[in-house]
Nucleic acid binder design. Sequence first.
DNA 1: CTGAAAGCGCTTACAG
DNA 2: CTGAAAGCGCTTACAG
Lengths: 329, 329
Amino acid sequence: MKNRYKKITMADVSKLAGVTKTTVSRYFNGGYVKNETREKIKKIIEEYNYEPNIFARLKAKQTYTIGVISPSLRSFISGIFLTGVEKTLRENNYIPIIMNTNHNTELEIQYIEKLIRLKVDGIILSATEITEEHKNIIKNINIPIVFFGQEVENAISIANNDYNAGKEVGEYIGYKNHKNVGIISVSEKDYAIGVVRKNGILDGLKKYNNIQNIYIEESDFSMEKSEIAIIKLLKNDIDAVICSTDRQAFAVYKVLESRNIKIGEEISVVAFGNYDVSEILQPKLSSVEFNIQDAGIYAANAIIKLINKEKVQNIFHTDYNFIKRESIK
Amino acid sequence: MKNRYKKITMADVSKLAGVTKTTVSRYFNGGYVKNETREKIKKIIEEYNYEPNIFARLKAKQTYTIGVISPSLRSFISGIFLTGVEKTLRENNYIPIIMNTNHNTELEIQYIEKLIRLKVDGIILSATEITEEHKNIIKNINIPIVFFGQEVENAISIANNDYNAGKEVGEYIGYKNHKNVGIISVSEKDYAIGVVRKNGILDGLKKYNNIQNIYIEESDFSMEKSEIAIIKLLKNDIDAVICSTDRQAFAVYKVLESRNIKIGEEISVVAFGNYDVSEILQPKLSSVEFNIQDAGIYAANAIIKLINKEKVQNIFHTDYNFIKRESIK
DNA sequence: CTGAAAGCGCTTACAG
DNA sequence: CTGAAAGCGCTTACAG
């Protein structure tokens, strides 16, 4: 058997098959090749386990690479999203070039530039914030781009149905007859979570007319900041805490447990994200589950459609499901 | 201001700077360029925000791309590892091509072939199993490869100090006077965890001569299988469960809670991995923390050294730290 | 210190 | 249906 770990080029294959590399190229790119010729090429390819080097498609219209920019490589949400994206892209013979910004928006812009230079066919951007620069990109870029996490005007975007999800949670907290509610929010720069989701919650809380006080503390996605937020909220006499994410709820659990405050009895806790461990917590955390894997698959399919000049609707809302568990009294 | 989202090539830059592209190339690749010329080029580059297309280095000795193969994009461990790798690679001007196998070993081999075709300078492989095919690769591949997670003979590898960590845990369970111990293991194909870590545990358990029975159930990294494993173990009268990973421990918590068995009182639970939520669980999970971020940074630095023909020691063991919390009586 | 020419591994008009 | 030639955006000997 041939050494599969030695490189072999299209020129080598063409010689071995007794054709020219034009024909081999056509073989791979769906051009006309006579059946007999096709067989000859196929034989060599299989024997030598050949596959063209995608990075050498310098002159091609398509490079079959897709840039994927993520704010994190280690969060629950981004892990699932990337898994969905990667799988779908790979199945369609695209290769993802994954870039991690570590929540640095400036890097996001730099990576877009870098990806364009790399001649990617399209970009999937999981964004936490949409700046003027992003809008500028949308106008000037000439490859398709799909946003995830935020609704973006005049662009293709995939977002959670944050308003409705927030509203459902808010209504339920009211329905369960809470009086004084603390909310841990995030920066309004993260419009989807910091504004839309929050507004949904606030509108939902109004429904049953029994909420007396609402206290809001801004945090971020870290446990540290969220611990500070819940400590501040506890200065008020609250009977419910609505967290923007499960991770924030973990911080709340930590603080409440340390103070021996009974979750689900003295104070209700609810969050968004439904991480896999949330049902292991004591008491089990109530949380809104978003179908992130689907979002990833949708994003990958959307970018492929856009590359193929097919129509894609401007905004796609991910499904959600409010899972009520023991953390609500 | 120039449109930053239009591509500009080295030829364009060279014309604008009044030199030839050879010189511009040398500018970027550390060749001799007169200071005056250097300034002219620098000016244009900054004005147009130019950077060479790394994928067009078809003729170069180095492509500055590194293949990174991971069994998952959404596990706690791989997330941290990839974050460390990506950061370090990026800081050194390498770009990672991240491939996800979803625990499919066959894909692993395919991706190695694909990466070689892509002319990556080196490969970092986070492996759960080392097969004959892997050993074959090591012999035949002519670019450097660094393994993570498993110790590999005649290759550069980074692994947790699984034996010592296992032993420390085993000893502690003996020291705390447990009598009947259940172990949830993983397949022996995963040598690091399924054999080395397990052997460490078993050897550790011997130290205090007080363990009467040891029951072992094989699982994998999923909660589902681990629930089945703990249910089987509970048919024996055990007073401690040693899990191979925190995720397995989550399954154990779930089952024990559903049966109202008091963790840390009736049964001790201990695991390996120390996921960030493990200290939020009730009772707090005792677990061995491995410094995975360091492993990622080390792996990236190792591959860069190998590319530069520098020496790297064959095996590097990641630090660990056994964190004892309330889950042990 | 810099340039002209060839080449990396492909694709793409253009012929035939 | 297939080939010869040019070219993608770079790098690299080789001159000078």
